[in-house]
Computed example of a mutant assay.
Amino acid sequence: MRAENGPVPVGPSAREATSWLIDQALGFVFPAALRAVAVLGVADRLAGGPLPVAELAERAGVHEGNVLRVLRVLATRGVVEELDDGRFRLTELGQPLRSDAPLPAGPAILMLTDRSLWQPCGELEACLRQGGPVFDELFGMPFFQYFAQEERTATAFHNGMAAFSDQENEPIAAAYDFPEAGTVVDIGGGRGGFLLEVLRRRPGLHGVLLDEPHVVTDHRLDVDEVKGRWEVTPGDFFTEVPTADVHMLKRILHDWDDERCVDILRTSRRSLAPGGRVLVIDAVIPSGNAPHQAKALDVLLMAAFPGRERTRAEFERLFAAAGLALSRIVPTGTVVSVVEARLG
């Protein structure tokens, strides 16, 4: 039996089509292997150069024969490479697995493969039958309630979202024409990585980071280049947000169903300064059959969250219900776009 992630066959025979589908069903082994090496810090042990499997296993404190089997799987996707002498080396594609990488991928991998997301995705047939997430049935409560009680899951989630954001914050901030002056509020902005990039590019802007108290405690805004131009406001974006010229909602609305999204947008609308804008920074699902990360994330959200990724038409409906109007969509060169809304 072969396990590959090869290209979709063109004009396949019945045998080729069956073989390809079986290969795809084995696809879950690869993220499981990624998670294992991320948890155990295997990439850090390969940072200094290629190693024999026995030495790598000893340094990482893992079973020699089993780590060899996992590395072989990772080598099929170019994350590591098995050399002719049997040593393994970390490739350029695998470098972000290192904990000291400039843009580490490990935290995002650990979030996406955490059992709080992995297990619901294994029960998609229940989602299709009942029309809602299966997280509640598996864990006994909705995701965000579980999240508030399970420190391990919360840590994985916050670290993972920071890793997601770190590799996209700069191009998003560069793609949108933020005002030269005024106030911008990052609603649900986590630790403030995106707000920091925006403030770096607009010296005349004042920034406000709004999120839950336990989140903003670990904010990243206290750097010299934006000194005196920011404040942190613990709060609940369902009830009240500070008045501002720009409200940013980065990867927030996709966590919630339409009704709750409209609640968030109405709260924002009430606090917009005259001529203000709401920026929803989320993926916009494109039409057609081409691959797009948002299509996979949408299924993950379907399994575990009340939310979803959305199309342009779905964003337009949300904005209209909240008294706003979609004015434009700005691509950013990343998976997400800046969906701009103004008063309707």
Rank of each mutant, 00 (worst) to 15 (best):
L205Q: 14
F147M: 11
G204L: 03
F143Q: 08
Q167C: 04
L279M: 13
G204D: 06
R260Y: 07
L199I: 01
R270K: 11
T217M: 11
A175M: 10
H158F: 04
H219E: 11
L210P: 09
F143C: 03
Y176E: 04
F237C: 07
R260V: 00
V246G: 05
E168C: 03
L221C: 12
L253G: 01
G192T: 14
G228T: 11
E197H: 14
D177S: 12
G193A: 11
E197P: 07
H247M: 12
I187K: 02
V185T: 13
P274S: 01
V226Y: 13
T153S: 02
D177I: 00
I281E: 02
A244I: 02
V226P: 12
T243G: 06
E180V: 07
G192Q: 14
D222Y: 13
F194D: 13
H219K: 05
I252L: 13
D186W: 06
E170T: 08
I252W: 03
R266G: 01
E151D: 12
T233A: 12
K227Q: 14
D166W: 01
V278I: 15
N169I: 00
L205G: 10
D177F: 01
F157N: 08
G235T: 15
F237V: 00
D255H: 12
A175I: 07
E240M: 06
E212K: 12
H254I: 04
V241M: 04
G235W: 09
V185Y: 03
L209Y: 10
R152K: 08
V184E: 02
A163T: 07
I264R: 03
V280I: 09
W230V: 07
T243P: 01
V184Q: 03
M161H: 06
A181R: 15
D224K: 13
R152D: 11
F178D: 09
Q149H: 07
P179I: 09
V198C: 08
L272N: 03
P171A: 06
A283G: 13
Y176N: 00
D236I: 04
D186H: 04
E225R: 04
A148K: 03
P234E: 10
S165F: 05
R191E: 14
L210D: 05
T183S: 10
V278T: 09
D282K: 01
R200E: 15
G204T: 06
L272M: 13
A148M: 01
L249W: 05
G207N: 05
E170W: 06
F147L: 02
R251N: 11
L253S: 03
L199N: 05
R269V: 02
V208K: 09
D258I: 05
R191F: 08
R201A: 15
A173E: 13
D224A: 15
G189N: 05
T155F: 03
I285E: 11
E240V: 07
V262P: 04
S271K: 08
F144S: 03
S165C: 13
H214F: 10
F164M: 08
A244H: 09
I285N: 05
D218E: 14
Q167Y: 04
Q145G: 00
D236T: 02
A181E: 15
H206R: 14
L195I: 12
L196F: 10
E225N: 09
L210F: 07
F164S: 00
D224R: 10
E170K: 15
L279S: 02
P274G: 00
S271P: 02
D177T: 12
T183A: 10
V241K: 02
E151K: 13
